[in-house]
Design a protein around this nucleic acid. Structure first.
Lengths: 336, 336
DNA sequence: CTGAAAGCGCTTACAG
DNA sequence: CTGAAAGCGCTTACAG
């Protein structure tokens, strides 16, 4: 079965290669008995079409490219899962590539997709990244950007980071918290930027008499831990800390635990993302759930529509969900 | 830049396409000034070779296929990360595919790799899966199996599940535990089988007077929880429970917590895998760390060697590491 | 409904 | 060192 080609099938079925091609690809215009003969021959020879040859002549690869900053961790794993699910429903393959924050690698990854994919799903969460990406992209290649700053005529799918942050502030205020500090993410990260904007707007609207209270973090646990220590030294301390992602929230909680502070009795904590850990720590972390797999699935569906020539535009941001656990409990309440 | 081909470059550089090909692929026999002209033209036209065409004529795709049961979760995410790292070091792409436990999909995924990849990394953790896979595979396609039951002349990389289980039993016995129950994984799973074998052998060697005490689980949290409840009803209860993976261990701990049992004071718990959660729960879970990314990297390196024609055989199982946390504390000790 | 032939964009002996 | 040509394995107008 090593090198069975369409010629072998044609010979065995006693037809031309053109007819084999038509029969195998389900083109209507093949006589039933001929088609049967071809299929039987193909099965017997265990024939599988050579993908590169098919791609070269049909100009289709049945593959979509996925270019991400990284392949590591829950977020990308979930994203790929959602993409994969839609892709396989459509019989498409996934060519994945990561660039580890290196612009040159990003550029190389994008370039190498030429002739390998029918369309591209790309993510460039940092400012400038998507602009560079657009420049590198074959202009004719259908594409969908994930979680990027929207740009004219460029389809983008994203999460409603802004709405999620607003919802969280609303929840914390509802719990009676008034001094709500925000631990933001990297300045040049688009998601982080939107969450910060949501925090600011919600504070301005719900607690017009108070000032926003912002600290900068880097989306990792260590920076959350540092921020937690900084907040411990503040007088008065905040009632609640809203971290722009769960990893930082966990780092914060760790710092508070080390200092003997009880969460939420002494200070409430909330995060964003709803990573699996959020449900396992004690107390459970109140957070905003983002359905990452659905985000990936949406992006894939949109891309497939565009490959098919449908002028599908970007979709509205993916809604988030407030997940209330113990960490955001009412101010002064005893821990459950 | 949409459809720049080698012909366009040849025209601009005033040479034949053959020379362009040689210059771009770094074949030594091109005059320096000619090479420079070609490279300049290619850069100016933003030329990227068409991958399918190149593959078709060179019989190389610069891509390795990765066929996994699933793309979801920490394990696969880490595995892909390790593979990706080695692949990019060698300038190779990754075509990923999952089959969700469906043999037909597995077969289809394997077949569709023809002409798309230079070699295949495949994982079929269930009995029978790898046999079916071998039958589907193009015999000539280089491949490496991951965590599969070793077979003659078939390169396999795997984890030392057996040794890890032996080490864990040794640790538990060292802590003074004598009645050590084992919560095994799915019967038809190769990793689960090896861990069970390690448990049995270690018990027979270290505690020759005692009987193995085995319960069956399914590698998920729910079955761990059920097993924990079953053990609560046993009289006498075990001193320690060694679960064949961390998710089941966590389910167990959850059942014990619900029943008011203290871990490890009343009963010790240990797992296998060292998933991130293991370090976050209270008490921390004693477990066996498996470097999944390294497993993926090894598999990729071995495959690349085989693609290059080196007759690299399988490697020895990847060593594991005992991670001692609070959950396995000495019998009767107070919780930290 | 079927076949002969061109062509997809490259690479690689083969000459020179 | 360079070019003309064959060939990789398909698909797809074009005839018939």
């Amino acid at each position: 079965m090593a090198n069975v080609t369409i010629k072998d099938v044609a010979r065995m079925a006693q037809v031309s290669v053109a007819t084999v091609s038509r029969a195998l690809n389900g083109h209507g215009n093949v006589a039933a008995p001929v088609r049967a003969r071809v299929l039987a021959a193909a099965r017997e020879l265990r024939y599988t079409p050579h993908a590169a040859a098919r791609s070269l002549s049909s100009r289709r690869t049945q593959t979509i490219g996925v270019v991400l900053p990284d392949l590591y961790g829950e977020f990308f794993s979930e994203l790929i899962r959602g993409i994969d699910q839609v892709a396989r429903e459509h019989g498409l393959h996934l060519l994945v590539s990561s660039y580890h924050g290196d612009p040159d690698e990003q550029s190389a990854a994008l370039g190498a997709m030429r002739g390998r994919v029918d369309g591209l799903l790309a993510m460039a969460p940092y400012v400038g990244g998507s602009e560079a990406m657009r420049a590198d992209l074959d202009a004719a290649l259908p594409r969908v950007l994930i979680n990027s700053r929207p740009a004219a005529d460029e389809p983008v799918v994203g999460v409603d980071n802004y709405g999620g942050a607003v919802a969280m502030v609303g929840h914390l205020v509802g719990q009676g918290h008034r001094r709500i500090a925000f631990l933001s993410g990297p300045e040049d990260n688009f998601d982080a930027h939107e969450r910060l904007r949501g925090y600011r707007d919600a504070i301005a609207r719900l607690l017009p008499q108070s000032q926003p209270w912002e600290l900068r973090g880097e989306f990792d646990e260590a920076s959350g831990h540092r921020a937690g220590q900084a907040l411990l030294a503040a007088a008065p301390r905040p009632d609640a800390v809203f971290a722009a992602n769960d990893m930082m929230a966990l780092g914060c909680m760790f710092a508070f635990a080390q200092a003997g502070l009880r969460v939420p009795a002494d200070i409430a904590v909330a995060g964003f993302d709803d990573i699996p850990l959020a449900g396992y720590v004690h107390p459970g972390l109140t957070t905003i759930r983002v359905n990452i797999a659905e985000l990936g699935a949406r992006a894939a569906r949109l891309l497939i529509a565009r490959i098919a020539g449908e002028a599908a535009g970007g979709s509205s941001p993916l809604a988030t969900e407030l997940i209330v656990r113990a960490s955001s409990g009412a101010r002064g309440a005893s821990p459950s």
